[in-house]
Amino acid sequence: MNWISVQLDFRKIFIGDLSFDFAAEIMIRTLLMFSMVLLVLRLTGKKGVRQLSIFEVAIIIAMGSAAGDPMFTQDASIFVSLIVFAAIIILYRLITFWASKSEQFEKVIEGEPLYVIEEGRFTLLDDHSHTFAKDEFFAEMRQASIEHLGQIKTAILETNGNISFYYYTDDEVRYGLPVQPKVYGKKSVQIPLPGMYACTYCGRTEKLEKGPAHCPSCKKNEWVTAINPVRIT
């Protein structure tokens, strides 16, 4: 049996034609371009990634593309990237100016806030055009010390990715869908005992008898025991 042996040239793989002089040049190029990216981000006035809209994320991607090649490509001059950066800044300023003058244009660029929860129930689940991830939203709720949907009057997904929660008062808290993994994980299509249960899909709560049941709102048949403790702040 013939074996084909391949001898790997690790120097060629990891170093190639790189010289010491160009390695030093890469470090200088990287420092310059990274500083430019930070400067442009500071000019936008944003304080963190969670404050960025989809439009601003697209701006950052464009800047990253413009900054990346000059960092390690000898034929890519830094001056060309500065021209791209200037064009991006001008475009950003123009679009934000137009958005401030036209609410309709702002909605096209930034999007609109979305109501995720109203009166302790999910409202987005019937809209097949959204990309709402319920598990990620549960994680956001747990970080806000929310134990179940019955504590929430309204939840709004903002255009920058943040979530605004508006809570029921302690005496208004109702039964709701639990968001803790161990509790939510005990879902079943069979109701074991009579009591209050929450639909795992839309969050609607119902008093159910033993046996199978379908949700009147979403027509799903998966349930978990509903809980109603008040929110601890």
Rank of each mutant, 00 (worst) to 15 (best):
Q74T: 13
H130Q: 11
P70I: 07
D170T: 12
R93D: 04
S145N: 13
N160S: 09
D126T: 10
G150H: 00
T73H: 07
I95F: 11
S81T: 06
T169N: 13
P70A: 11
Y168Q: 12
M71R: 02
T96C: 07
V84D: 08
T159N: 00
I117V: 13
I95C: 09
I89E: 03
L149F: 12
Q74V: 08
T123R: 04
A87K: 09
V173P: 00
V108I: 15
H148P: 05
A139K: 11
H130K: 14
A155C: 09
I88Y: 01
L114C: 06
T159M: 01
A86L: 13
F72I: 14
K101I: 12
A139D: 12
I156E: 12
S100F: 14
E106Q: 11
R142Y: 03
A87R: 07
H148Y: 10
T123G: 01
H130S: 11
E158C: 07
Y168A: 07
F97T: 12
T123H: 01
F72S: 06
H128D: 13
I146P: 00
V84A: 12
R174C: 08
R142E: 08
S145R: 10
L157E: 04
F105S: 03
I146F: 01
V173T: 10
V80R: 14
F79R: 06
I89Q: 01
I89Y: 04
I117A: 02
F137T: 01
H130M: 09
I83F: 13
E110W: 04
R174G: 03
L125N: 10
I78S: 02
K153L: 14
Y92V: 10
D171T: 14
L114F: 05
K107Y: 11
T159D: 04
T154R: 15
L91D: 00
D127E: 09
Q74H: 10
L94W: 04
T159I: 13
L149A: 05
F137V: 05
S102G: 09
A155M: 09
H130Y: 11
S164W: 08
E136F: 02
L114I: 15
D126Y: 03
A144G: 05
M141Y: 06
E110T: 12
A76K: 15
V116S: 01
A144L: 03
L94C: 08
S164E: 09
E172S: 08
T169G: 13
I156W: 00
S100Q: 10
T73K: 14
E158H: 02
D127S: 08
N160D: 15
R121F: 00
A87W: 04
S102Q: 08
I90S: 12
F105A: 13
V80A: 12
Y115N: 10
A99R: 10
H148C: 08
E119S: 05
